[in-house]
Design a protein around this nucleic acid. Structure first.
Lengths: 175, 175
DNA sequence: TGTTGACGGCTAACATTGTTAGCCATAAGC
DNA sequence: GCTTATGGCTAACAATGTTAGCCGTCAACA
């Protein structure tokens, strides 16, 4: 870890995360964030250069937690790794929808993220399927499923388990 | 068609689309939109209740064009329908990245959209795969691939054709 | 011990966003 | 010829991110 962030900055990120997770991305506002900490908005700029810098920390948190969740699933289930990874992926996304969105959407400021984090998150999946192209296909499938579910793009009340099963088994067993 | 929109409203939507497609979602601003039409921002509210209403029209345009693109691909290629649909889907998204994002991300105001449009867009895919669950899987895969590509989430310069091929063939041929 | 400087607050202000209130000219319809 | 819809306008408001500049506290160092 060797936190490159000051304790105060850490508090700010924690408050930002609470705001984001509870009330969504629109609620993550510099003034609201400051309120929650009992200070005024401009004071936040003593700790972060801008709002994007706070968000980068949240993105890093989200990615590391997702990595951890996938690694745990990988370690747990020797029976059907792919199903375990898919379930873990979906579970994490549904448990932290706003953080997931922030983490996985929009351009990634790769140079500001802990080096290796992105690769680490991808590794369990790559290990499970071997082929890099197939890994990309599976990752796209999982991300697509989650994002469409979060956005309510599937018919309301639809059971998505069969689609997950169909997708994961098809993509795992090479044609 | 039976345009429920006045001619002036139509002009506004056209200008909005130019703005969106050329300069991105952040550039789609009520004031900038008004500028492009030679009027002031508040005058726009004589034609639309709010900005979201303008965006709904753009969403409808995007969805209908996407539907048309898929229908064309369906009609054109009897050799490998799925590959044709995938190519058409990706091509449309890459040709109109900002419009695609607006159309396919975030909550859908279904009640404000032309009835049947959403189904129509999904139909070519459903026809191609038969099963509804599998259709959802394929749609998630395609959307995921496009969105990850647009966001630059894949390694820069990576050739994505193999991933598309792997995904589409796997998802098409039942396990 | 006294001074310096970093740390971390603060107020005031600015530009930009969506949006509302209210005024006014033009053109059409009865 | 009066009325009314149409479609402009200015002024203004609240909320956003952000900057400039001031000030108190406290630790370190001469």
């Amino acid at each position: 870890m060797a936190d490159r962030l000051s304790p105060r900055a850490r508090q700010i990120v924690a408050a930002a995360r609470e705001l984001l997770e509870k009330d969504g991305a629109d609620a993550l506002t510099m003034r609201r964030l400051a309120d929650r900490l009992g200070i005024r908005a401009p004071s936040l700029y003593k700790h972060f250069p801008d709002k994007a810098a706070v968000e980068v920390e949240l993105i890093a948190e989200g990615m590391e937690e997702l990595a951890r969740a996938l690694e745990a699933a990988e370690a747990a289930g020797p029976d059907d790794v792919m199903a375990g990874l898919g379930a873990a992926y979906r579970a994490y996304a549904l448990a932290h929808p706003h953080l997931y969105r922030l983490t996985t959407s929009g351009p990634l400021p790769r140079d500001l993220l802990p080096p290796g984090l992105e690769d680490r998150t991808a590794m369990p999946l790559v290990r499970a399927v071997g082929d890099a192209d197939r890994a990309r296909a599976v990752w796209a499938f999982a991300h697509g499923m989650v994002v469409l579910e979060l956005d309510g793009r599937f018919p309301p009340g639809a059971d998505l388990d069969p689609a997950w099963r169909a997708g994961l088994t098809s993509l795992t067993w090479p044609a």
